[in-house]
Nucleic acid binder design. Structure first.
Length: 271
DNA sequence: CCGGACGCCTGTCGGC
DNA sequence: TGCCGACAGGCGTCCG
């Protein structure tokens, strides 16, 4: 579910509630997420203040006085601020409860998400250590993509979805970015020129920025911290639109699996 | 080292 | 209406 814009939207929603808050307790109802939540996690985080929040790729970071909580929403995760004494719904796997009666509640039906406390600097954690650059920060540009594509042979779509290359670009935004850049998703990444990679880098930044401004994309289960839905779905040009006319040339949008993921593209506009 | 396939889970949707 | 397979926004691991 959540790609970079959804995670950023979540971060902006919860940060005002969490910054400076003191953790009263962690209530875990279901430990079996992507990796089981270790039994000592409750003890590790209890009584600690949240000094700050950050995002790295699709990971949310809660910086504590000692250590950091890493949260990943997987395919179906969402976070909401609730009263700690409100009844949990199905798949509400844990509450991070604060002094004052509020809690951060994680819902994740498919349980592909992550909730881990780590004592080390988050950048050194094995899950984060090999991540590529942030697409919205300096250093991510056409030259970077071009250089990294020299020794690769895969299709450009799985190339830009590789978190070791650049973080945060999932299936929806990969499809949308390639459409805006006019690049066919199955084109070999080493057969794209520097010029076109500059267009692609710009497209990725524009799509992600626009999606963040619109609160992310709500297809089915993504909700913001206050329960509202993002409306970038209204701006999707190709994702989920197989058979519909291309917004540019009216040719029917095509659907095809590339790298085990559904890929939507215009066969005329994207080469 | 790379690329491709697989598996982890539950929910939903379309076809029969 | 019910059943069954396919598919879903991610990603670590395994295999060739």
């Amino acid at each position: 579910m959540p790609e970079l814009p959804e995670v950023e939207t979540t971060l902006r929603g919860i940060a005002p509630h969490l910054r400076g808050a003191c953790i009263d307790r962690l209530l875990v109802r279901e430990r079996r997420l992507r990796w089981p939540i270790p039994a000592d996690t409750e003890r590790r985080v209890r009584g600690q203040r949240i000094l700050g929040l950050d995002r790295r790729g699709k990971y949310l970071l809660l910086e504590l006085e000692r250590g950091t909580i890493l949260i990943h929403l997987g395919m179906s995760g969402s976070l909401r601020i609730r009263a700690a004494d409100s009844p949990p719904a199905k798949h509400d796997h844990l509450d991070l409860c604060f002094q004052g009666g509020q809690c951060l509640r994680l819902r994740d039906p498919r349980r592909f998400g992550v909730f881990l406390w780590t004592p080390e600097p988050p950048a050194e954690h094995p899950l984060l250590a090999h991540l590529g650059p942030e697409p919205l920060e300096p250093g991510f540009d056409g030259d970077y993509l071009y250089a990294r594509a020299r020794d690769r042979r895969c299709a450009v779509k799985p190339f830009i979805m590789d978190a070791g290359l650049v973080v945060g670009v999932g299936n929806i935004y990969a499809n949308e970015s390639l459409f805006r850049a006019g690049i066919h998703p199955a084109r070999a990444c080493n057969r794209i020129g520097r010029e076109r990679y500059w267009r692609l880098a710009a497209a990725i930044r524009a799509v992600l920025t626009s999606a963040i401004e619109q609160g992310g994309t709500s297809l089915r289960d993504f909700v913001r911290d206050d329960g509202s839905r993002g409306y970038f779905s209204l701006s999707l040009q190709v994702y989920g639109r197989a058979g519909e006319p291309c917004p540019g040339c009216s040719a029917p949008i095509r659907l095809r699996r590339i790298g085990q993921r559904s890929s939507f593209y215009c066969p005329r506009c994207q080469t």
